[in-house]
């Protein structure tokens, strides 16, 4: 057990924790955040994705201590119902989900990739999403929403 200080979605928290605890469990169980999900626990699906250091990270295999000073952003931190982020708006407009369980992985992975390379081609976007699973197979709408968001940023 040790004291861990953690910044999530703009808020600072101090928690007494085993530093080896996966970040996902801390977000879900200690901070009550809903968006990052346990899908596989083995970095194979993306359901637990959060953004740290501008990168999409799989929080199921990331010990909380590895976050250090950096801010963690989850899907709920990206935007709110009142003020959604443009990529969230694009997903709403396209109705790009079925059950929605996979959305942290899909939206945050795409966002991080486009932040890194705003002009990314369809192929580069696909490559970035190469390890993200959606078993409802809402792929077509999701890719459309991502394209829409990418284009709106260029404009």
């Amino acid at each position: 057990m040790s004291m861990i200080s953690l910044k999530v979605n703009g808020r600072q928290h101090t928690l007494e924790l085993d530093p080896e605890t996966p970040l996902l469990f801390v977000l879900n169980d200690e901070l009550g955040l809903r968006a990052p999900k346990f899908g596989c626990g083995m970095a194979q699906c993306g359901a637990c994705t959060v953004i740290v250091r501008r990168q999409a990270m799989r929080s199921c295999v990331m010990p909380v201590s590895a976050v250090r000073e950096d801010e963690v952003v989850t899907l709920e931190g990206l935007g709110s119902a009142e003020k959604p982020h443009p990529i969230q708006e694009a997903f709403m407009a396209e109705g790009a989900a079925q059950c929605g369980f996979c959305l942290s992985g899909v939206i945050l992975t795409a966002k991080a990739a486009l932040d890194e390379k705003p002009q990314a081609s369809d192929e580069e976007i696909r490559e970035a999403l190469g390890g993200v699973l959606c078993r409802c197979f809402a792929h077509l709408r999701m890719l459309r929403a991502i394209r829409k968001y990418a284009d709106s940023r260029k404009a």
Partner: peptide
Amino acid sequence: RIALMTGQF
């Protein structure tokens, strides 16, 4: 959709 896309669902 709004709750889903913003992670509140």
